[in-house]
Design a protein around this nucleic acid. Structure first.
Lengths: 108, 108
DNA sequence: CGTGTAAGGAATTCTGACACG
DNA sequence: CGTGTAAGGAATTCTGACACG
């Protein structure tokens, strides 16, 4: 929603910032690791977050990881994040340190 | 120094975001209201701050202001900012609420 | 699997000029 | 003054394919 998520940057700039080749960047898209948008003409547009993702991907590739492993890892991280959020919500309602219930709930 | 100041965005995207034409954007550059950078090939690159400036410029143009007036106004604002900063520095040294001087200054 | 490259075309941007008002 | 536009060229990006390992 802020500047980092807006897809505005062309692939040439992304190459400069990440040190990756166009070929690499397009391939990572093909492997569903990044999701640029397109102009009406079909030119790819990336966000700052995409650039950060690509730098992270580049590092993992250097470490010998494969694209599908990187995708799995990313999906697991998303799953964990969801889980933590749910835990947080449960805790807010039923945990030890929950806020006192509203009076309207004590109607019995 | 942060995302908003990085010059990465091509003129087509800037047109979309500001509603201005390429002609207008280049003209405002000619009149020294904005200062895009260039790729090696010569393509202009703009920052988020440039886009915000352009939206401000567009509004002032709508109000009937001329480019040189907008530039003057901008320069005055810069001058005021400098003045305020200097005032602040003077106040920090000689004002009522200044911090006590360092011992090393009391050598007489 | 991940990446380089040559190929051909399409989208994007550039400059300098003419036009209007 | 501020902006539109047609013109021609140059830079940028795109896709699909072949190659190597």
């Amino acid at each position: 929603m802020n500047y980092k998520t807006k897809k505005l940057i062309t692939i040439g700039i992304v190459c400069e910032m990440t040190g990756l080749s166009e070929r690499q960047i397009r391939y990572y898209e093909e492997r569903k690791l990044i999701f640029p948008e397109r102009t009406k003409g079909g030119t790819r547009k990336y966000s700052f977050n995409d650039i950060e993702s690509l730098m992270d991907i580049a590092e993992k590739m250097d470490d010998g990881m494969q694209t599908f492993e990187i995708k799995q890892l990313h999906n697991k991280n998303k799953a964990s994040a969801r889980e933590e959020m749910i835990k947080g919500q449960i805790n807010a309602r039923f945990g030890q340190n929950r806020a006192p219930l509203d009076q309207s709930d004590k109607r019995l």
